[in-house]
Write a protein that binds this DNA or RNA. Structure first.
Lengths: 196, 196
DNA sequence: CCTTGCCCCGACCGATCGTTCGGTTACTCT
DNA sequence: AGAGTAACCGAACGATCGGTCGGGGCAAGG
């Protein structure tokens, strides 16, 4: 009807190719020439679909941020005891990290050299801060240990979760999203020795 | 006597400047022009001290890797019960990460675009594998939980420890090396809810 | 004093960067 | 069939990339 399904690139399909290359070589280490080779079209053709290299980055990190902030709007993240909301958010973060893996990977690697990157860093900090508030509330309820400073614990937990992008690969059918989410939840709340 | 202490750059002092800029802008995002501005000497003068940009990277990641592998040679990492050796290694990793912060930071961010970077990645994998063996031994002893796969647990613990380079800043006298090492050890082995 | 050698510099190299432009192909619609 | 247009291309833009070159300044040793 309206879309007769042409075998051609859209900004979205082009983005998926670009993000893959960005993650392989790093954003700064990727030239438009690299992207054109990976996409199978000429360098100049890329500009028919997107305004430039930075727009590809902006689209990618936006998608990742939308996924993460979407978690905080879900019901289980808004109502209930703080510790349970925290556990829900941690689990959902793992799920979003995996379902949007390449986009979140790119988000977690921006350094702040351009306006787009600085904006991404700012939004990331905002998300971290929201989750830190949740952990603080759980600590106030006495549901998580109080002998480790909340800000420090938040950063370490984020570090563990975010590190998933460094090694998780969806192709090898050795490990599922559920298994990773379970392991993270157990380690975060129970530790290596805990039993819960 | 032999060295009359000239006020000039050595490969080492130049390296400390370069690593700082590399971490701020990313290795690929840093030009020799950026380095020359930061060092206060001309671009061509840099080549009087080092062979090129990649040598600076190699020196930096070598220093980081020497620090990490040095841990495994220490007595407490070689003798004793596996779980105790693991805890010692985890604590020392935090200490080395902090004492060699900029160098380890750079090491943890290489992507593998050049031979130097691929060599760094390979050595990192070797180190990870050694520590994973330690965790596996502790699991075999029954000292750490067995319901989380060893390989997965190792990666998550590494993720938590390595994330320190993303936020720890030595200048603000708000947090000491000891405090971070304690927090990591408690969270890794006891979790958010554990008491140990 | 003059020489030696370290440290540094401006100017420049070919290559590559992200981007632009004019024009061609190929498909859709009437 | 002819018009219109989305998709694409090769060539080239100015800027910047990592790196080279010949030479100048200056402190140390004689």
């Amino acid at each position: 009807m309206t879309t007769a399904k042409r075998d051609t690139y859209t900004p979205e399909t082009l983005l998926s190719v670009a993000v893959r290359v960005f993650n392989e070589r790093g954003y700064d280490g990727t030239s438009m020439e690299h992207l054109s080779k990976a996409a199978g079209i000429s360098k100049s053709s890329i500009y028919h679909h997107v305004a430039g290299k930075e727009e590809l980055l902006r689209r990618a990190v936006s998608r990742a941020l939308d996924g993460l902030f979407g978690i905080l709007d879900e019901e289980h993240a808004r109502v209930g005891r703080a510790a349970e909301r925290l556990e829900y958010v941690v689990r959902r973060m793992v799920e979003v990290l995996i379902s949007e893996l390449p986009y979140v990977t790119l988000l977690l690697r921006v350094r702040g050299n351009t306006d787009t990157e600085r904006w991404a860093l700012e939004r990331r900090r905002e998300f971290d801060h929201r989750v830190a508030g949740l952990l603080a509330a759980a600590a106030a309820d006495g549901d998580v240990r109080g002998d480790v400073e909340v800000r420090l614990a938040t950063r370490l937990v984020f570090g563990m979760i975010n590190s998933i992008v460094e090694w998780y690969r969806p192709d090898g059918r050795g490990m599922g999203e559920r298994e990773v989410a379970d392991a993270v939840t157990q380690l975060v709340f129970g530790g290596l020795c805990g039993q819960r």
